[in-house]
């Protein structure tokens, strides 16, 4: 009897505060690269409808993938590796040109417009999420 009362009391709490992240990776894209160019970048939007999570790893079949940030503080463009990226509860994180992105190095072949490549994002709570990345003409967006 006592246990069932406690369950009834806890039920409303569980329904308003999400207890797990709900991650969706949208609109993953990359610019085509030149023959011989060893590196490229992948952009995407991470949408989370649940509790906070962290992006802790990235992998691609096209080359070695790393999470990077670009910034242009005081007029100088700098690119640095990030070990992880927080994904806030009920929020979005944009991986976009000139900001945080996934860098590909050691490309096995040039990225060609119209093709697609594989990408797996590994989240601390959610685990791996795999998506296809659309390769577009470099001037397209």
């Amino acid at each position: 009897m006592r246990i069932s009362l406690m369950l009834i009391a806890a039920a409303p709490l569980a329904s308003c505060a999400p207890t797990a992240p709900q991650i969706e990776v949208r609109d993953a894209w990359a610019r085509a690269t030149a023959p011989g160019q060893p590196s490229g970048a992948i952009y995407a939007t991470i949408v989370n409808r649940g509790s906070a999570d962290r992006l802790v790893g990235v992998a691609s079949d096209a080359g070695t993938a790393m999470l990077h940030s670009s910034d242009s503080a005081d007029g100088v463009a700098r690119m640095r590796m990030l070990s992880e990226l927080p994904v806030p509860a009920s929020g979005e994180v944009a991986l976009a040109p000139g900001g945080t992105h996934i860098m590909l190095t050691g490309l096995k072949a040039p990225l060609t417009a119209g093709s697609d490549i594989g990408l797996t994002l590994r989240f601390a709570e959610t685990g791996p999420r795999s998506v296809r990345v659309a390769v577009v003409a470099p001037g397209a967006r």
Partner: peptide, 17 residues
Amino acid sequence: FTHCPDVCPTTLARLAR
């Protein structure tokens, strides 16, 4: 520089646009 995957193609694509 050509090993630059983000800022440089973004800037050149913008100039083209």
